[in-house]
Structure formats: C-alpha cells, structure tokens
Simulated scan of single mutants.
Amino acid sequence: MTSAATALVARGARVVAQFVQRRGVSGGGVRKMSLPYSSRTLLSYGKVREVAQACDQANADAVVFVAALTGRQQRALAGMLGCPAVSLSDVLAAD
C-alpha cells in the first residue's frame, strides 16, 4: 500500500487514508474466514461504512483500490461511498 500511495502522490493525488480489509480478527471474522469476499464490493459492509465516513469527512474525490475492480463493483462502491471507486491499475494505465 505504501508503493501505491507513493505512485498516486507522484501523479498529484492527495492520499487522506488507507484501509485494509482484515478477516479473522474478531469472532465474527473468524467464522467467515472460509467464505469468499463480497463479489459485489470486495469489502465487508462494516468496512464500506468506515471508508464512506472517511470519504465524507475528507471530501474525497475518489477511492482507489489496489485490487482490480469490475465495472459492477465500481458502480456498487461508487453508490455506497458517494464518490468514484477506481482500481490502481486503471489510474496507472491512464498515464
């Protein structure tokens, strides 16, 4: 994530927060370890809320995911986060 943030800053972005989806930390997370991540968002609902709150507080223009996102995931996340959700690879390819 550090190299991703560095690459974004080099392109003029302002990185205001970094989030990691962790599983297996809480009792509920341990029970879900064998389940796949949400194909709709790649994140748990709680993590989406956490990121959305940070976006709102920072007045973020976009959220960049290190993982590749499908078009469906981008649309779902944009609606939930209140700003565009893009893949790091898409940002880097835009140069």
Rank of each mutant, 00 (worst) to 15 (best):
M1A: 12
M1D: 13
T2R: 15
T2V: 11
T2S: 14
S3N: 11
A4I: 03
A4Y: 01
A5Q: 13
A5T: 05
A5G: 09
A5P: 03
T6A: 15
A10V: 07
R11L: 02
A13P: 02
R14G: 09
V15L: 01
V15W: 10
V15I: 05
V16R: 11
V16W: 03
A17M: 02
A17T: 05
Q18R: 13
Q18V: 14
Q18K: 10
Q18F: 02
F19A: 09
F19Y: 12
F19N: 11
V20P: 01
V20G: 06
Q21Y: 11
R22Q: 12
R23K: 03
R23P: 01
G24E: 04
G24Q: 11
V25M: 01
V25Q: 07
S26L: 11
S26D: 04
G29S: 02
G29W: 02
G29D: 01
V30W: 05
V30M: 07
K32N: 13
K32M: 10
M33P: 03
M33H: 10
S34K: 14
S34Y: 11
L35W: 04
P36N: 10
P36A: 14
Y37C: 13
Y37H: 15
S39R: 08
S39C: 10
S39K: 09
R40G: 06
R40S: 08
T41Q: 00
T41W: 06
L42T: 03
L43G: 05
L43E: 00
L43K: 11
L43P: 01
S44H: 06
S44V: 04
S44I: 09
S44T: 12
Y45L: 15
Y45S: 15
Y45R: 15
Y45P: 14
G46V: 09
G46Y: 03
K47C: 04
K47S: 11
V48F: 03
R49P: 03
R49M: 09
R49K: 15
R49H: 07
E50L: 11
V51I: 09
A52S: 00
A52F: 05
A52H: 04
Q53Y: 15
C55V: 11
Q57R: 10
N59C: 14
D61R: 08
A62V: 15
V64D: 02
V64I: 09
V64Q: 00
F65V: 13
F65E: 07
A67M: 14
A67E: 15
L69R: 01
L69E: 02
T70N: 08
T70D: 02
G71T: 07
R72W: 07
Q73I: 10
Q73T: 01
Q74K: 06
Q74G: 14
A76H: 06
L77N: 05
L77A: 10
L77H: 07
A78I: 10
A78F: 04
A78D: 12
G79H: 05
G79S: 00
G79L: 12
M80S: 07
L81E: 05
L81Q: 03
L81G: 00
G82P: 09
C83D: 06
C83S: 05
P84K: 00
P84H: 07
V86Q: 03
S87N: 00
S87K: 08
L88S: 04
L88W: 04
S89D: 14
S89F: 12
D90K: 08
D90L: 12
L92F: 02
L92K: 08
A93S: 14
D95S: 11
D95C: 07
